[in-house]
Write a protein that binds this DNA or RNA. Sequence first.
RNA 1: GCUCCCAUCGACUAGGGGUUAGGUCGCCACUCUUUCACAGUGAAAACACGGGUUCGAAUCCCGUUGGGAGCGCCA
Length: 484
Amino acid sequence: MNSEVRVRYAPSPTGYIHIGNLRTALYNYLFARHNNGKFILRIEDTDQTRKVEGAVENIISTLKWAGLDYDEGPLKGGPFKPYFQSERLGIYKEHADFLINHKKAYNCFCTSERLNTLREEQKKLKLPQTKYDKLCLHLSNEEINRNLSEGISHVVRLNVEEGKVIKFNDHIRGEVEFLSELVDDQILIKSDGFPTYHLANVVDDHLMEISHVIRGEEWLPSTPKHVLLYNSFGWELPVFAHLPLLFNPDRSKLSKRQGDVAVEDYKNKGYLKESLINFIALLGWTAGDDKEFYFMDELIKSFSLDRVNDSGAVFDIEKLNWLNEEHLRIKTDEELVRMLREELNKSKYSSLEFTDEYLIEVITVMKPRISFIKEIFEKGYYFFEEPDVYDEVAVTKGWKTDSSIILEKFTEKISAIEYPTKEDYETSLNETALEMNTGKGSVIHPLRLAVSGVSGGPGIFDIVFIIGKDKTIERINKIIEKLS
RNA sequence: GCUCCCAUCGACUAGGGGUUAGGUCGCCACUCUUUCACAGUGAAAACACGGGUUCGAAUCCCGUUGGGAGCGCCA
């Protein structure tokens, strides 16, 4: 038996990747990288009716964005093409035939209508479990062959023997037991010839030599079916590890109703991939120390399945926001300028030109005040355009009858300096206050209002220095005109 | 309804027979700052309940309650 760690992320292309899926993918990825194993992407596209256009591309680009690069796919199409189950139909058919030949599975010709009424009846009788009644298991070979040759629509079902205890070991939960009479004769091959999840998943996991099946807890109840399949084929079980679920704040399963669930939504909102990864890694796993801030390579180093929690976790946006701030603040000026320019091009300021030096100055003073890079345009809009309106509260509190005269005095002083430095502005302001026989506050507040339109923000000398002498004077003149 | 899984501050979690039950986010206060933040300091805040085992239980066992998932020709 191959001892190499081989894991897979196996999404179905029915939409976007959501946060819970990304965490599953991440844990698989971390586990593979930590153990120098392989991380495989397999697209489970066996449901023709649920296929969504562009979903595969979305999955691939999301994984790429998140930094979860996968190692393996089929040879055709290059090394970075994932596996597609829809391209492996023959393989599943062969395996289903093997099971039929060994009496582990059988053809079933029952119609959906019959199945539905059967289910209704069983519900009415308050039976503990609705399940197929094995009617077609007792068909004679002649009947089966006749039906088959007449081309009657049929499926292949797993033949589950009653009275057995199905036991398996879950890496996270320990030993789990199910009674076989509660397990339905699961459909393996649908009438359209496509396999169901259960068959395709087990066959592929075996053929691809998956050593650890790491997936969401929602799969735990169907694991006995998979165990039965492994047994029927005579295959060794992989290690199962069922991850605890992610919840909405009200502890229901994570869903769109209560906030965003698509990874793309977070990306579009401006969350850094570093913080999203850091955050979801901590949703159900901890190294056991007090470390909270991680980069991917540190996660790989520390990750272990043994320290994954057993209980579900609520997705708390506040902590994500905090991590986003932390990851943002640790970025270099170059990176931040690059990011800011990207946002700039998408913003209403896209036609304006700014030098890297200017943007770095803005970033430096705004960095401690933002959670997202694009917030610079909201909270520091005055670095990109002249204030048009003045914050009402700030006006009431900061603009006095003598503010105009005071600012005129200040203007006089800085006009006299050709290239004022930050210190020059400060000195001018101090002198203004002194000469006007007032406190510094009565210069600072109106000045701040004039240049920024609001009452908060970076240090006033930083602001005026960054926007420069000409614009400062312009804005002072404007506010005097408007407010006096 | 049935089966399975789970249960420590509001949230994420550490601890896993003897701890003042620790950390992080958030919330609050103070310091810094004539602004807003950042930073720093501090505070409030939890072992679901009931039995049992034990000298001793948040920790082990059983039960109750609560929450969740699953019960498709979906994955």
